[in-house]
């Protein structure tokens, strides 16, 4: 807690009993859940991991605003989680994996909630509209193909091919059995490869 100094040069924590000054609450808060890192360490971790996490959420959900909300909630839950991996003892890879797991659970909760529109109906136009000239090549190819994939397939493909996670890591993030990841990923890859080839064929014929 930040120390506030009174006009008499005395801190509130000293002038007031601990419980009134919030000391007891802070102590209880620390006991309730110890944060996996301090403010500076978190800022550095956030700087390194926020963009990949947002990219994952935005691509899988096809909704940038939702991705922003879920990303923020993921970090808050990460900081509040009592059993979150520590950067010092567990390493950044473990912390990042845990963060992706929280985000994946939030996405799943979001999809389970009854809504007016289904996730399947949300278009990918946002990305096409934002793309610069050098990016548009991949977006024009991937966007429509990704739109035809199921959310679970998008998750698996993104984690495997964009984030480069192993099957075991994907299992940890998604909560699926490690043995089934290989088969699900194989099918999803074959499906999207066929879609990408089908999209590339007319372009090739035109050129």
């Amino acid at each position: 807690m930040a120390t506030v100094v009174t006009p008499f040069g005395m801190s509130w924590e000293f002038a007031l009993p601990g419980a009134l000054a919030g000391g007891a609450l802070d102590a209880a808060a620390n006991r309730a859940c110890s944060s996996p890192m301090d403010n500076d360490a978190f800022a550095a971790f956030y700087e390194r991991s926020a963009r990949p996490l947002w990219a994952y959420l935005a691509r899988v959900s096809s909704d940038p605003a939702l991705a922003e909300d879920l990303m923020q909630e993921s970090y808050v839950r990460f900081l509040c989680a009592a059993n979150a991996p520590s950067l010092e003892s567990d390493g950044e890879a473990a912390a990042r994996l845990y963060l992706f797991r929280i985000a994946t659970n939030l996405l799943r909760d979001h999809w389970r909630r009854p809504r007016a529109t289904s996730i399947e109906e949300i278009p990918e136009e946002f990305f096409a509209a934002r793309d610069s000239a050098e990016q548009s090549d991949s977006q024009i190819m991937l966007g429509p193909a990704l739109r035809q994939m199921r959310p679970r397939e998008r998750q698996l493909l993104w984690l495997a091919h964009a984030e480069g996670y192993s099957h075991r890591e994907i299992a940890a993030v998604t909560g699926l059995a490690a043995a089934s990841i290989r088969l699900l990923l194989f099918r999803a890859r074959r499906k999207i490869a066929a879609l990408l080839r089908a999209q590339a064929a007319p372009i090739g014929r035109e050129s």
Binding site: S35, N39, F42, A43, Y46, E47, A50, R51, P52, W54, A55, A58, R59, E68, M71, Q72, Y75, V76, L79, C80, F127, R130, D131, S132, Q135, D137, S138, Q139, M141, L142, A145, L146, L157, W158, H161, A162, E163, R189, I192, A193, L196, R197
Partner: peptide, 29 residues
């Protein structure tokens, strides 16, 4: 084919990301 498309998409999407300040999330937590 797939890995190349996803890598390119990742690069493009990360470039489009505009994450807010970390301090706000820290204090929210």
């Amino acid at each position: 084919l797939v890995a190349d498309a996803f890598q390119r998409a990742r690069t493009a999407t990360i470039a489009a990301a505009r994450p807010g300040p970390a301090g706000v999330l820290w204090w929210r937590a």
